[in-house]
């Protein structure tokens, strides 16, 4: 569904100042997948999406989306894809339902069809009571649902969503996700979305593409990434720092004060044996726990930075 090779975008900010927003992205996404782009602010997520949706010509490299080249045949790409941008899609002067009808007309639906489709979507996304409102009077979650409705008007096989859930409270986020998952179940839509919420990428996406500084630095299922790049840990607390050093000598791992971390394959299975080993060596253990990795640990391993540190808008 999406194939890119060396996709690159350089912005010229001032005459001499260049920003390498995206540097050589190679990506292949098959039909029917739910893929999440995960990365900190300024990683190049939006810029990549904007190139894939024909909004921005690549500086170099190529991208074939829904079977058509984004540079050579943007019109064909457009008629096959839907896009929910990072900012709100509805015009401030336009009523909710009017915008949905206009959007249908933009995709070539006849007036009657466009009206019917608008009502269908209002219903699908629980927007019917808000049909006559102006976007400015909607709550953040309601506006985001409208954005998604606008992206769905022509039943695209491939939908791009740029941070569909950012800035919403947990309840609205859960609602948005409910809609996204239902959409996929009903229509088998291929979804490429960006997020900087770790848990979201972890629990919802089948495949997580971690992007930082304009490059893809990791790509796989959340499980793979966590196992390969971070792994389970057994963490024990010893009575004294000397005990901690001794624990490292007999069983490995790293010590900090009285805490010893040991990377293992499956923490729950490894814990009893580990404790017996330490006991036999005379190490006094006061507490023990198993730690499952998060995608943040993956990011930390790869970049030495934590994703959650710069979660605030830059």
């Amino acid at each position: 569904m999406i194939h890119t090779r060396g996709l690159t975008r350089v912005f010229t900010v001032r005459r001499k100042e260049k920003v390498d927003a995206v540097r050589g992205v190679d990506l292949d996404i098959e039909a029917g997948r739910l893929v999440a782009f995960l990365g900190p602010n300024g990683a190049g997520k939006s810029t990549t999406l904007r190139m894939l949706t024909t909004l921005l010509p690549p500086t170099s490299g190529s991208a074939v989306v829904a079977g058509h080249d984004v540079v050579k045949d943007p019109a064909r790409v457009r008629s096959h894809i839907g896009y929910v941008g990072q900012r709100n899609s509805a015009g401030e002067e336009h009523r909710v339902r009017d915008e949905l009808v206009s959007q249908g007309r933009c995709y070539g639906l006849r007036p009657r069809e466009a009206t019917r489709r608008a009502d269908e979507l209002l219903d699908l996304l629980d927007l019917t009571p808000l049909a006559k409102r102006l976007p400015g009077t909607l709550s953040g979650g309601q506006r985001r649902r409208l954005d998604i409705a606008l992206g769905l008007v022509h039943r695209p096989r491939l939908l791009f969503m740029d941070e569909p859930s950012t800035g919403l409270d947990p309840k609205s986020r859960a609602e948005i996700w409910q809609h996204i998952l239902r959409l996929r179940e009903t229509y088998g839509t291929t979804l490429l979305l960006t997020t900087h919420y770790l848990e979201e990428a972890d629990s919802m996406a089948e495949r997580v593409v971690i992007i930082d500084g304009g490059r893809i630095i990791a790509d796989g299922t959340a499980e793979q990434l966590k196992n390969d790049l971070a792994g389970d840990h057994v963490v024990v607390t010893t009575a004294t720092a000397q005990d901690a050093e001794k624990a490292v000598r007999v069983a490995g791992g790293t010590a900090r004060d009285t805490t010893v971390r040991l990377r293992v394959d499956r923490a729950a299975a490894a814990l009893p044996g580990h404790l017996r080993t330490l006991d036999a060596a005379g190490v006094k253990v006061t507490a023990a726990e198993t730690v499952r990795p998060t995608l943040d640990d993956v990011f930390l391993t790869l970049t030495g930075r934590s994703l959650t540190d710069d979660d605030l808008p830059a």
Binding site: G82, G85, N88, S89, G91, E92, C106, Y107
Partner: peptide
Amino acid sequence: LVELLGGAFERLLVTPL
């Protein structure tokens, strides 16, 4: 200018208009 600051113009640009 107003539509550019929001995302409405971008949304229209993604359609096959």
